[in-house]
Write a protein that binds this DNA or RNA. Structure first.
Lengths: 343, 343
DNA sequence: TATTTTTACGCAACCGTTCCCGGAAACGTT
DNA sequence: AACGTTTCCGGGAACGGTTGCGTAAAAATA
């Protein structure tokens, strides 16, 4: 099946002028007479002409397309970020190609390489939890394709980054549990090869420290960002001789697993044990009891990432300094953690 | 920022041969001597050559890209379909560009046009609930860009379609409620301008008819596929003088709204009232009680749509006849509707 | 009126690749 | 030795645009 749209050459032949004249008339060049300019414009409109973007790409080595790689588009966190990216990209004439890494290093590398050969103008990415090597990002940079990281960044790659202040968020979350009167607070941490996993764990530890609460090794466990792992670890935690009176999960996915486990075990939240998640999942408010969590500014994160990327793309020379923007998550108090009156 | 990769011309100059020779050697043409072929291949590997896909696109009017337009990528139904599309597309060397219509007719038209000018090889789409005009699809067909619809199709456009048997699914769902002993079954239907809305409503009505149950006008209401609407309408239904003893919601989203309302009102499910949704949302199993629903073969739907589209793209001439594949949804019995023992 | 300037357009190269066509050298055949 | 075949490779057009440069005609100036 072939494409059929009108070309400049056809317009030119029909009007009896050269294709350069048509091209210039279309771009409203000053060196084309008013009369011919009108004739060209009229015919172009009549024939419903639109320039071939592929030819343009070939000419100026630009595709007006940005690639986005996320672990999973079904995750509302990522789809919301993508929404933000799309908004600013589309408004500035760029397309967005979305790739999924499915948390796999191999697929991330494959997608990155694909993007490189596809001559995408730039890449916005949140790295997969399985990624430990960053060579594929260096290759991109060597090809002069700018990158912006969001949420999960490769620390050693120098480029713009848009992050959430996971440390502070976790700190706030933990402090909230403390304010609710909990003293034996456990943490189910995320993968420690991801900075978000490490930072949330640090925030937890420092909050405990600030309030002089004990840090017990057996109360701090870690796993993948998965519901199944969360449920599993909740059983372990509650089986301990010294039970925690609160669990702070590093993500809502984990927290939902914990939630399921606690209900199965017959615990009441928050009376018996308080629960907090991280990164609002929209499902979280539907649970019974609804889950307290840290809301992340996802849409805004996408917008900012896109703004930074387009800046890189459109500037002639590499910037002198790279920027790291840090956005603040916000505490949402729901029933799973709020013991105090008034709720 | 410019791209930097090696071109055929550069390889040719370095080897002292013509670019046609290099091109042919790379494609392993039989009319190039073994010796030169090796030299070319070696240098190409050393210089890390990869052909410029843009130039290729320009040449044969192909982009090896398929567009996908869905109302909302955050909806697991659609993201799962996209997963299926990606799987077969990638395995056959195609890229996938994802667009969101956000249920808006205008955005759907804009995306469709965009896709047309972008010279995508084909389009896979599930139309927005706000779409009533199909002119933009005709334009695509005029440009010889093949389309495959999934789930929500434009009936008057002749092309391949992959649908779910909504009629039968709704029929099964309703029959299931009847088997559980419900006799006063209400239906919250979806938008009636979408075939999936209409077909599910028909399935509901016919199941009632088959079992000789009354069809009461006030027990059949309709709204958008939204949680808020579902909650709203649940209040209305339960306020009726003659209360239903079961509600079949046309989608899980609606059903979740109903679920919330019923709990707020103090009803027990399924004892006081049974509830069924449609199109498993993954959240549905986490509700208390878990929601019965009709699982849709989403991933498979994506695969089939992609297979059909690639077939259209790669065949020279338009097919003599267009195919409509109908996939069967599957009943999932959960607590919200199962009164009988053994659960 | 002769000369210079401006206006308005065409020619051709270019982006990176493929492919048709044509031709030189090496080879095989009588 | 003369001729037809292969084998192997280069030239150049084409895809659909943009753009630098050259130039004829028209307009402005002397």
């Amino acid at each position: 099946m072939a494409r059929s749209s009108v070309t400049i050459k056809e317009l030119a032949k029909e009007l009896g002028v050269s294709k350069s004249t048509v091209s210039r008339a279309l771009r409203d060049s000053s060196e084309i007479g008013e009369a011919t300019k009108q004739r060209v414009l009229d015919l172009a409109r009549a024939r419903n002409y639109s320039p071939n973007p592929i030819a343009l790409s070939l000419l100026n080595n630009r595709t007006y397309t940005v690639g986005v790689i996320v672990p999973d588009i079904a995750n509302p966190f990522f789809s919301s970020v993508i929404g933000g990216v799309e908004e600013v990209a589309y408004s500035r004439g760029y397309h967005v190609m979305i790739y999924q890494s499915h948390e796999s290093y191999e697929r991330e590398v494959a997608s990155t390489r694909h993007i490189a050969t596809r001559h995408v103008d730039g890449l916005i990415i949140s790295i997969a939890s399985g990624t430990v090597e960053y060579e594929h990002f260096r290759e991109l940079k060597e090809n002069n394709i700018p990158i912006v990281f969001f949420d999960r960044a490769a620390e050693e790659i120098r480029t713009h980054k848009v992050l959430v202040d996971d440390y502070n968020g976790a700190f706030q979350a933990t402090e909230h549990l403390i304010e609710e009167g909990c003293t034996k607070i456990a943490h189910i941490a995320g993968p420690q090869n991801l900075s978000i996993g490490r930072n949330r764990a640090r925030g937890y530890l420092d909050a405990l420290g600030k309030h002089g609460l004990p840090v017990r090794e057996e109360w701090m466990v870690h796993c993948e960002f998965s519901q199944a792992d969360g449920e599993e670890l909740a059983y372990q935690l509650m089986a301990l001789r010294e039970r925690p009176d609160a669990i702070f999960a590093a993500s809502d996915r984990i927290a939902i697993g914990v939630h399921t486990a606690l209900r199965k075990l017959g615990y009441r939240m928050p009376e018996d044990i308080a629960l907090m998640g991280f990164s609002d999942l929209a499902i979280s408010s539907l649970l019974d009891p609804p889950l307290s969590t840290m809301i992340q500014p996802t849409f805004e994160m996408g917008q900012q990432a896109a703004v930074l990327l387009l800046e890189l793309i459109e500037s002639k020379k590499p910037p002198v300094t790279y920027e790291t923007r840090v956005l603040m998550p916000e505490l949402v108090r729901r029933k799973s953690s709020v013991k105090t009156a008034g709720y």
